[in-house]
């Protein structure tokens, strides 16, 4: 028993240190504030380490932001997420046109190569879902590509969903094709939200059901006129209320950005 406790302590210490590393590879808060001005990140990992991750970086005149959700959670998800961040960094260092679809395409190549995925039956099928935006502040143009995860865009309390391609970043049942490169023209005050499926998939409420996307959209519309920090607090409050004493089923991540 003593042994088991020791092992647990050791495991916890190891996980805590891993979470420290994971946080270290996530973008620095100040760096993000400098780039994005008004934003919030609502990130509630299910375990000590998380399979959800967010990303923010500048490449030339563009700002690249992403919300990723790696298959699984805990340690395997965390390992995938670190891989995802590294690959994104690598891709952004390559010369070439800056397009959201291209970034996801290249990321998929790297994931497939790293996991030796060739479309065979018994091979590793891990992948990640991701919503990725490329924003050009000067023109207000926003490119979006989604791997299973959509983007919500709110302007004057009207929410528009930009649907994602139904394929992950990684091997899939069907042959790879290029991700769609959506282009939106933003106006000052517009808010975009990218997220993992953790929030809508969380069980809770009086009937212990999933929160679902519809209520999430309504919630986001409702709070969209609040400051970003207030929005984060509200999302946190609503989720805590919804979940109650229920077990958190997955990592939760919502990345909201208001463009000025």
């Amino acid at each position: 028993m003593e042994n088991l406790l020791d092992q647990r302590r050791e495991l916890m210490a190891s996980l805590k240190y891993a979470s420290f590393i994971q946080r270290a590879v996530l973008p620095d808060q100040k760096y993000m504030e400098n780039l994005l001005k008004e934003f919030f990140i609502f990130h509630r990992p299910r375990d000590i380490v998380s399979g959800d991750f967010y990303y923010c970086s500048r490449k030339e005149d563009y700002i690249v932001v992403a919300a990723g959700d790696c298959t699984g959670h805990g340690v395997p998800g965390a390992l995938m997420s670190i891989m995802g961040i590294s690959f994104l960094n690598e891709i952004l260092s390559i010369r070439g046109p800056i397009r959201s679809s291209r970034i996801l395409n290249l990321l998929r190549e790297r994931v497939m190569k790293a996991l030796h995925q060739r479309g065979y039956e018994l091979e590793n099928k891990d992948a990640m879902d991701m919503a990725l935006c490329v924003f050009h502040p000067r023109s207000g143009e926003l490119q979006f590509s989604g791997a299973n995860n959509p983007l919500y865009h709110i302007r004057n309390k009207v929410l528009t969903e930009i649907k994602a391609d139904k394929m992950p970043v990684g091997i899939d049942a069907i042959e790879e094709s290029s991700f769609t490169n959506h282009v939106l023209q933003l106006k000052p005050g517009d808010i975009v939200y990218i997220f993992s499926d953790g929030y809508p998939d969380q069980f809770g409420g009086p009937e212990n059901k999933k929160f679902k996307y519809g209520p999430l959209r309504e919630l986001l519309i409702r709070i969209s006129d609040k400051t970003m920090e207030e929005q984060r607090k509200e999302l946190d409050r609503v989720m805590s209320e919804w979940k109650g004493d229920e077990f958190q089923v997955d990592d939760i991540l919502i990345f909201g950005i208001r463009f000025l």
Partner: peptide
């Protein structure tokens, strides 16, 4: 000069699909 060779005019996806016809990550 931005393209090391003719085949680099293809995106990796098209290159895999129409030229080498493989499904593996090409980085």
């Amino acid at each position: 000069e931005d393209y090391p060779d003719t085949e680099d005019l293809f995106s990796t996806i098209d290159f895999k699909k129409y030229v080498v016809k493989v499904r593996e990550g090409i980085t």
